[in-house]
Design a protein around this nucleic acid. Sequence first.
DNA 1: TCTGGGGTCCTAGGACCC
DNA 2: TCTGGGGTCCTAGGACCC
Length: 419
Amino acid sequence: MFALIDCNNFYASCERVFRPDLIGKPVVVLSNNDGCVIARSNEAKDLGIPMGAPAFEFEKIFEKHQVHVFSSNFALYGDMSARVMDVLSNYSPEMEIYSIDEAFLKLKGMEHFHLQEYGRQMRAKVTRWTGIPISVGMAKTKSLAKVANKIAKKYAEKTGGVYIIDSEEKRIKALKWLKVGDVWGIGRQHTKKLIARNVFTAHDFTMLDDMWIKKHLSIVGLRLKHDLQGIPTLDLETVQPKQSIATTRSFDKNYTEFEQLKERISTFAVSCAEKLRSQNSSCKSIMVFIHTNGHRNDLPQYARNIVVKLPFATNSSIELSTFATQALQKIFKEGYAYKKAGVVVTDLTDEKNRQLTMFETSDARHIPLMQVMDKVNTLYGQQKIRLGSQSPKFVWKMKQDRLSPRYSTNLADIITVNV
DNA sequence: TCTGGGGTCCTAGGACCC
DNA sequence: TCTGGGGTCCTAGGACCC
């Protein structure tokens, strides 16, 4: 058996842990730059605020219904996630942390446990120890555990937040209930195709011909079909080293000057370099992209990316910044209003096993320099030491008007209790 | 005015090898 | 008329996830 544990309305729930006065009230959390809604409490969902709703379009509704709006506070959510995962790890030796708010547990050898009760215990303990409400779904395969979890969440009162698919009868009933577009692994494009073929439910999907699925949804779709039929096809995935690392941002306003973009790209490259160093990797290629605002029909559009193979693997902020800004020069065009840019590093290698080239031009002196930079910046705050190319002339600040305190990761933000 | 960020996997087609 | 067979690697693009 597999269990899928999912935190309910995770970001919104994190905000509520330290603001219990918000329980029962509509809460939404916005994306970077306070752009769109990325998390909603049940009360906010009931108001008809959709996922991804642009904040500016819903400002009136927020006001009218006294919705509590938060900027995203990833320091808080990351820390709360670690706490939840820590509690869950006590319930099985085999766990896969699937995302910031989801984990699969393998319940091998627990067939004789009272699983319903086991799920209830998990739920009680996570809520008690972290303040985060969760839903638990269990079934013979991962994708069915996902389905069970949806049922547990949707019918929380009836199920107590725990649902188990443990018979063929329940499996069929669950799959007939689930819309095909809500199946894990079936997105918008595939849903369109499936509905055109009169496939409306997950159950309809499992009745499709293997060859048809393989042709139109690839091997991934076929595996999913088998998994949904109760044939274990998807196993827990072990933690793999990352294949790519990205830092990308939308801007608060449109940028037209090369110098402005250069500062951004340099900063993104430095950020990627820091992420690389924190996991002891170097990268051998780098991708830089820029584009205009696709939502603005009134402005000329331009989007380009460029991949640069590096002559040697590196994680030096200085070197990556240099390569990135050189790349930017190749794709930048005058006369456009740029809204978003990013740097993605790929071809990652272990720092220690770095292959040198015959004519290595990477500067070995950067290594101790980066160590010192990381140390100082960790101790005294981000960007206390930065490159000259990250000019303070262009001070850039993300719009975060409604940021909550970092209750659990910053000493100054710890809550005070008055007795 | 204003619309997120960070990932993964698969396939088809081209280039290349013997 | 008639032009092999079997591979690998790489890349771009498309799909998906939270």
